[in-house]
Design a protein around this nucleic acid. Structure first.
Length: 221
DNA sequence: ACCCAGGGTCATA
DNA sequence: TATGACCATGGG
């Protein structure tokens, strides 16, 4: 990203998305911990399947770090089966919960600075850049711009970025252009995801869909 | 039958 | 640093 991103263009795109879809109020979930679990379970997975897994955990009173650490890993895997990759995600959830409780839980972690907390999250095996940023933004209310595949494709299609920038390069560029704004970042990421689903619903398998990797043409809103 | 989903890790060159 | 294999269910 040689040149700085245009704050004006970014805000205009946001306003268009907001006008079309309305406020999304993300992240869906009752508690901060549920957000964290959902962030891990939704890795490369449709949210509908994550909801089933979360429902299983809730039905078994297992949606807490203590219970996730207490139950058998095979049992945990069985509960989260609908969200796919259940064996590896069971390990990842346990890794996360071990880190979370060892660190002293939410109150203790909330005392850390944005950069320190981000660095700590990324040490957890199974938590990568996007999962860490989901947790930082939606569970800890930190002003980080979540970069997912949709975000990259959208801004690339619209000519704001090249598309092959590194994760942090892109994230920092957006954060710098828009300024630290938790409310804006929460809505922006949600609207991009909702727009992606909307486009793919309306033009299922349409070769012009801007969100398909194979899309040969630039789409508009 | 095929493609993809609100990614991440690990082995290899 | 940069690819590729792998993880796996469920909907369109």
């Amino acid at each position: 990203m040689p040149a700085a991103l245009s704050s004006r263009k970014l805000r205009r795109i946001f306003q268009q998305l907001l006008a079309r879809y309305g406020p999304q109020g993300w992240w869906p979930g009752e508690t901060a911990f549920e957000v964290m679990v959902g962030a891990v379970l939704t890795q490369n997975t449709a949210w509908i399947n994550v909801e089933r897994a979360l429902a299983n955990l809730t039905a078994n009173a297992a949606l807490s770090p203590e219970q996730i650490l207490a139950v058998d890993e095979a049992q945990l895997a069985e509960w989260i089966r609908p969200s796919g990759y259940f064996n590896i995600k069971a390990k990842r959830l346990r890794n996360y919960c071990r880190w979370y409780t060892d660190a002293g839980g939410y109150q203790a972690l909330a005392k850390q600075s944005d950069v320190d907390l981000r660095r700590a999250l990324l040490v957890v095996n199974g938590v990568g850049p996007e999962t860490a940023d989901d947790i930082l933004l939606y569970a800890f209310e930190r002003p980080v711009f979540v970069i997912d595949a949709y975000t990259r494709r959208l801004f690339a299609r619209l000519g704001l970025i090249q598309g092959d920038e590194g994760y942090d390069e892109l994230r920092l560029g957006l954060e710098q252009a828009l300024g630290a704004d938790v409310v804006l970042f929460k809505e922006y990421h949600a609207l991009i995801v909702v727009h992606a689903k909307d486009i793919c619903r309306v033009r299922a398998r349409c070769s012009e869909c801007m969100f398909r990797k194979t899309c040969p043409s630039a789409g508009g809103f």
